[in-house]
């Protein structure tokens, strides 16, 4: 077991964004995390990455209790994440953005530069590495966030709608990238609204609704689950038409 979250609850005032959620992830898995808007997926990511301490519950990563560890400690331990609304370092170049990530494992500038160049090649950003991050559109920013966190050499990577807002071509190449990341031995939890993406990537799917895990299992089985259909898949058309949500 790489990650085990038990009975995690996150409360905002009187509102439970995540409610008694338990999940466990094995090393080497790609797990899909789905659910309607506001189900608590991003909030769960924030708890798993140390961004928000859970109100209650316990999170164990690689045998270590990380429930209240800081985000930087999470990064050091090998838990990386991207943000639903990308947060790039606007005034820095694409290369410099990725070097910030690489400096976590390489104190020296030359080593960090070399590590960042590797990642830029892998993610296809190398040809535009000297452009400032602010020149990128949303799809480019999402790719840059992935590159940046990959440079920290994570063991577990949390991708929050990294493929949202991409066109068909871009989605195909992003799926390739996620596969390549997985092939490097990195375990992934992927939040995504587009069912085709989840079906083609995830071996196992967790369904969130109103802060709770309402179903879990192989992608095909989950799609058939009555409760899931009611909570989520019944609204497929509405979901497909929805713009990328603005909740971070």
């Amino acid at each position: 077991m790489l990650l085990e979250a038990s009975a995690v609850t996150k409360q905002f005032g009187g509102f439970r964004a995540v409610s008694d959620a338990s999940i466990s992830i094995d090393e080497g898995e790609i797990v899909g995390l789905i659910g309607p808007n506001g189900a608590g997926k991003s909030t769960m990511f924030n708890c798993l990455s140390g961004d928000l301490p859970p109100t209650s519950g316990r999170i164990v990563y690689d045998g270590r209790d990380v429930t209240r560890a800081s985000p930087e400690a999470h990064a050091r331990l090998g838990i990386g994440r991207t943000f639903q609304v990308p947060v790039t370092f606007e005034d820095m170049t694409i290369l410099e953005n990725v070097m910030v990530g690489a400096f976590l494992r390489h104190a020296g500038r030359n080593a960090a530069h070399a590590a960042a160049m590797d990642i830029l090649e892998m993610t296809g950003l190398a040809p535009i590495r000297d452009r400032p991050a602010r020149s990128l559109g949303t799809p480019g920013r999402k790719r840059l966030e992935i590159a940046r966190v990959l440079a920290t050499r994570p063991r577990l990577l949390l991708l929050d709608e990294a493929l949202a807002g991409l066109n068909a071509n871009e989605i195909a190449s992003a799926i390739q990238l996620v596969r390549a990341i997985h092939a490097r031995g990195i375990t992934l939890i992927v939040v995504e609204h587009v069912m085709e993406v989840i079906m083609s990537l995830a071996q196992r799917v967790l369904v969130f609704n109103q802060g709770r895990v309402i179903a879990s299992g192989a992608a095909r089985d989950v799609v058939q689950d009555a409760e899931v259909i009611r909570a989520y898949l019944g609204q497929t058309q509405w979901i497909a038409a929805a713009p990328a949500a603005a909740v971070p």
């Binding site: 990455s49 930087e72 790039t88 910030v100």
Partner: peptide, 16 residues
């Protein structure tokens, strides 16, 4: 420079 742009993103990359 990274924390000037976003402390949250910087911390997520391990910046103390």
């Amino acid at each position: 420079r990274s924390l000037r742009a976003s402390e949250r993103a910087a911390r997520s990359l391990g910046v103390p």
